[in-house]
Amino acid sequence: MYQEELVFGHPASMTDHYMHYCPGCHHGVAHRILAELLDEMGLADQAIAVSSIGCSVFLYDYYKVDCVEAPHGRAPAAATGVKRARPDNFVFTYQGDGDLASIGMAEIMHCANRGERVSTVFVNNTVYGMTGGQMAPTTMLGQKTTTCPGGRCQEREGSPIRMTELLSQLGGVAYAARVAVNNVKNVKKAKEAMRKAFQAQLEDRGFGFVEILAACPTNWKMTPIEANERIASELIPYFPLGVFKDVSQEEAC
């Protein structure tokens, strides 16, 4: 008889709820990383999540943490309200690209600029998933969606917005990074970036932001493996990975 040990299991702060996401959707990876950090950093029982509208609207089904649902795009404003009311709690938002970079552009910019002590996980899969594959503010030029069937055209629809670069210009931001979860190496880096974004809040340094480039095989009309490959070949060259801002304790406002 040998004694084996479980080296990779289900994060304690995650419910065992079956995830509603499509096969190969990266929301699940992002969810799991976040849950692992809540466990490792001992945050699950003091966290208050603010969910958004989009595919991740059911976020609250997957975590054993308190959660309030915000209107579309307003999660950073709702999180501001939660954190101002309960400064001792750990407060995070989880938002998609339509939610954060389109309808919620004002809320994320000002929440970040005020340096609210909250953390935002931004999942950029370049498309509106929940509503059926419409054009997003981060849709790539030439990418076909149900509302730009001929492909996104710069003259008509503008260029995909690089949120991490924009946010890193703002004074209240303590940490801003863009990561991907398309391979093992990137998953590990994504988790470390998220940890640093959370630490920015815990150490009272400012707003923490992590953009995750994510696959949406269904609306990209690709297999999960093809979608993963698209992240490396098309997305990362336009949305470069890396840490765009990391303000140390001494520099914090």
């Binding site: 479980l6 994060p11 996401y21 699940g28 990876v29 979860v181 093992v184 998953v187």
Partner: peptide
């Protein structure tokens, strides 16, 4: 037991077990 499969699994559908070396 590298757990690469579990790390990229979007559905937390893989558990990985290792047997410690001495055992």
């Amino acid at each position: 037991g590298c757990a690469f499969c579990a790390l990229v699994c979007p559905d937390v559908a893989i558990h990985v077990y290792r047997t410690p070396k001495n055992v």
